[in-house]
Nucleic acid binder design. Structure first.
Length: 435
RNA sequence: GGAGGCGUGGCCGAGUGGUCGAAGGCAGCGGUUUUGAAAACCGCCGUACCGUCAGGUACCAGGGGUUCGAAUCCCUUCGCCUCCGCCA
């Protein structure tokens, strides 16, 4: 969420920066100026009346003790009128606040000034690439054409259980998934300094509001209700970013504790509303997938260094696995709702002859911190300040499995196990008769 | 799922309608004293919003209500605790 005051005082700047995402955002700020002014005026008026009432109440305490019941009754009736006025003002103010807040909650973050302006994926800027595309003297297959014949990936039975966009992993594929999770967590906790967290997979609406999925993207979420009119429905997390970032919601972090770095393995659940027809085959786009997530909390002046670190930590996963990938900086049009700047890691998929997203590393600056009220005290006695929050996949496990299947495939349809996974996998090759 | 209890500032804890943003204690910070430390003593010690300042307003789990006035009364949601039931 953007700062209401900042928006009201910098309408032109905010309009311009938001319109870099998409021209339609520009107009979303129009109503905010007058609303902010109404808010200010109502606060001044309400508080003046409240001050009057509070002063009068002290006199009333005296009158109530005294003998003059008529004076008390008369004054009480006057104050009743005053009280009524205050209630009216408060109601009007509440309405304006609600309106202002709901508009603000729907507004995306301002892109960082350096983010390349563009309309879509096409305009993303390639920052660097690592490794080389494996060369095959045969036609490389997509992962599902490798996994299904080997009896490792089972989409038919998954559909029987749960419908489209679910999968069953058998044998070596299930084990590979587990090996990857362990490998990633060990790397981040032992070498990159993250603290491992096992968070809830079901969270309240507040948490999703904090990170920005609500109120605007409810359709992308799986919602659970304990009764048809459950006042506090729980949602399945679409990413561990939600529980990890909200861990410190409403807190004021002590001086000196930043930066904080958390990592968690969790399944993620997404309704994939609006993605009909996209990536329908295989593991690429599922309603449920596994991910190791990285989250960092930083001071405002260091958050961009932190973003570079975070990205490097995610990259290390792919490097150790020997997977060819590239890093792109998302253009304004492709930027996520809460992000000011994002690097995507895209891994090479031989069957598609292109790079596909496997990690997304973002600096949300104070956008989420303001929603979730995550603050820190820079030094003892100083005023609390909003922190900057960062998150990134470190990395998407299912997509890593795809990349390994495809980049490490052999002519006979078997798959070589990347070096670093061999101890846990107990084999150097997944293939017919080997799973 | 049934019955009951509770939710106050960083922590403990007082406060059951009137001058309470809230006693007291602990922790923390500053000072006096001391060769130094401890102890003792004095002071400070929540957050946000409005206001150029002085200052004002709001917040006692969240929301709503009663009242001239609510931390205090009522309703509701959430959370925690105890007992019973069920359960990985």
């Amino acid at each position: 969420m953007l700062d209401a005051r900042y928006v009201a005082e910098h309408l032109d700047e905010v309009r311009e920066r938001l319109s870099r995402r998409s021209p339609s955002w520009g107009s979303a700020v129009e109503a905010l100026g007058p609303l902010a002014e109404r808010r200010r005026r109502l606060i001044v008026e309400t508080e003046a009346l409240a001050a009057q009432r509070n002063a009068a109440n002290q006199a009333m305490a005296e009158l109530a003790k005294g003998p003059d019941k008529e004076a008390f009754a008369k004054r009480r009736d006057e104050l009743k009128a005053l009280s009524g006025q205050i209630k009216e003002k408060e109601a009007a103010l509440a309405e304006v606040l609600t309106e202002l807040e709901s508009r603000l909650l729907e507004l995306p973050n301002l892109p960082h000034p350096d983010v390349p302006v563009g309309a879509s994926e096409e305009d993303n800027r390639v920052v660097r690439s690592w490794g080389e595309a494996p060369r095959f003297d045969f036609e490389p297959k997509p992962h599902y054409e490798l996994g299904e014949p080997l009896g490792l990936l089972d989409f038919e039975r998954a559909a029987k259980l749960s419908g489209a966009r679910f999968s069953v992993l058998w044998g070596a594929a299930a084990r590979l998934e587990r090996a990857l999770v362990g490998f990633m967590l060990d790397l981040h906790t032992r070498e990159h300094g993250y603290r491992e967290v096992a968070p809830p997979y079901l969270v309240r609406g507040d948490a999703l509001r904090g990170t920005g999925q609500l109120p605007k993207f409810e359709a992308d979420l799986f919602k659970t209700q304990r009764s048809p009119d459950d006042p506090e429905p729980l949602y399945l997390i679409p990413t561990a970013e939600v529980p990890l970032t909200n861990l410190h919601a409403g807190e004021i972090l002590d001086p000196g504790v930043l930066p904080l770095a958390y990592t968690a393995f969790t399944p993620c659940f997404r309704s994939e509303a609006g993605s009909y027809g996209k990536d329908v085959r295989g593991l690429f786009r599922q309603h449920q997938f596994d991910k190791v997530e990285l989250v960092r909390f930083a001071e405002a002046e260091h958050s961009y260094e932190e973003l570079e670190k975070l990205t490097a930590h995610a990259e290390a996963v792919l490097q150790r696995l020997g997977l060819h990938y590239r890093v792109v900086e998302l253009c304004t049009g492709d930027l996520g709702f809460g992000s000011a700047k994002t690097y995507d890691l895209e891994v090479w998929l031989p069957s598609q002859q292109r790079f596909r997203e496997i990690s997304s590393c973002s600096n949300c600056e104070d956008f989420q911190a303001r929603r979730a009220q995550i603050r820190h005290r820079p030094a003892p006695k100083e005023k609390p300040r909003l922190v900057h929050t960062l998150n990134g996949s470190g990395v998407a496990v299912g997509r890593t499995l795809i990349a390994i299947f495809e980049q490490y495939q052999n002519a006979d349809g078997s798959i070589t196990v990347p070096e670093v996974l061999r101890p846990t996998m107990g084999t150097d090759r997944i293939g017919p008769g080997k799973s």
